[in-house]
Design a binder for these strands. Structure first.
Lengths: 248, 248
DNA sequence: TCATCTCGTTAACTTAGTGAAATGCTGGAA
DNA sequence: TTCCAGCATTTCACTAAGTTAACGAGATGA
């Protein structure tokens, strides 16, 4: 995987996202960026960054690539409960709890930064707005989780898949990963089925239907949304939960 | 509704829960308790403590009674995404975001405490472990939300309802609201259907089935679990996500 | 070159869960 | 007492989604 960044820093996605959550001072940005660049790591596709039951002792921030959070029942049924996209945190504050309640696995090659607990806490203490930004990151994650519950509980297959596409698209946009009306969408239909609570067969049928209606195209790991408004209508999509627009 | 407290303070449920998340010093407990008792409020059943789109400017803690968090689609379909039980916080830190992404409505008469933002922040600054406890509260809430996604996406009706019963039971126990093998369960089948993503009709069938198998009884707003282990087996229940046992 | 794997796709068939509507129960309010 | 409202329950016809299985295309590797 070649990592492409038009504007300088590897940490761009994270900086952008956190700035959208809370405007950070230049100084805070610089301190944050340095902490990120000092903790750079890479993982190949299909690696676990954390597994259910693990203890976690730091914070990981995704610079590029996709991951997903998932839980598996004893008999093998799996639910992907969220994706972790560039700019987002894997596990802010999780070291406060005893163990992970879910697993985090890479879907693609991933570049991420690890900030150890001690450093992280120092960072939050010295930069108050950064602490608030991390808090917001956690709260938004929570809001997304609620929207997923609604998606899984009350939307039918077509709406559900459409909703997922809208959400991912809107989450990728602010970090600069939407190009025209397309974005990378590097997950298999099996993963997508596990994210939407459908069988692979029915997920496939549903995607066919969305394609046939001309709303989207999805091939070679690229999602193109031909008519975003129409797709949002199909999905009963209401975006405020992502908190993409700043307070005041 | 008569509020019964065998051991003194109204704030007992909250104190117990937060102490289970992080052991609080006596001093921290006292300061916290005072803040709670100074902000006491009551609400009748069916009242909104917050609605989607509202701004929230403080933290509410539930002393007694049940509430639920819910989201509604444009066409009226509703999903209850979680319950808020005695001892839990409605909206810790939410003032950091611009607006509520969901609504919070009382299911029963509720006694709660409101702590305004300024006071709340002062409290967290002066009592570090309390800040950590609030953070844990948020993280556990997040974990519950993930479990709900799994429940809605990958469990069939019987497992799903069984799982909800197990979870609520286990959440009520540490705050002292389980009596023998029974607890209050003050929600209608319509609410339960909206919480499990089922139709009322099918929810009813499912409850009949659980009753017929002798695992539970549910009548007059009281849930009795006759065989908790068996119910957990039916539900593929794995409790660690509630983080009920302290780290170290 | 052949064999194997993963992934997407399609078909045939089954089933879990839905929707609408009617019935009965219980507990206020008039 | 009577009436009504809210809630639980049941029935029945219907459908959205699951299951199983098979097939093809492309990638990978011996």
């Amino acid at each position: 995987m070649r990592i492409q960044y038009t504007e300088g820093s590897l940490a761009q996605a994270v900086i952008r996202r956190f700035n959208a959550l809370r405007p950070l001072s230049e100084e805070a940005t610089a301190t944050f960026e340095q902490a990120i660049l000092e903790g750079l790591l890479r993982a190949g596709p299909g690696e676990d960054l954390a597994a259910e039951g693990d203890r976690v002792d730091g914070v990981r921030l995704v610079l590029s690539g996709w991951l997903f959070r998932h839980k598996t029942l004893e008999d093998g049924r799996r639910q992907i409960v969220n994706f972790v996209l560039p700019g987002e945190a894997c596990d802010a504050y999780v070291y406060l709890l005893s163990t992970m309640d879910h697993s985090i696995t890479t879907a693609t090659p991933v570049v991420y930064a690890e900030i150890k607990k001690a450093r992280f806490e120092k960072l939050l203490t010295s930069e108050r707005t950064l602490a608030e930004a991390f808090m917001c990151e956690t709260l938004v994650n929570d809001a997304i989780q609620r929207e997923w519950a609604t998606n899984l509980g009350r939307r039918v297959a077509l709406e559900r898949v459409a909703h997922l596409f809208c959400e991912i698209y809107e989450r990728l946009r602010p970090v600069g990963l939407v190009d025209g009306n397309s974005c990378s969408f590097p997950v298999t239909q099996m993963d997508l089925a596990d994210a939407t609570g459908l069988s692979v067969v029915h997920l496939n049928r549903t995607i066919q239907e969305l394609r046939a209606s001309g709303l989207i195209s999805l091939r070679e790991r690229t999602l193109t949304i031909n008519d975003l408004d129409a797709l949002k209508n199909v999905a009963f999509y209401s975006p405020s939960y992502l908190q993409l627009y700043r307070r005041d």
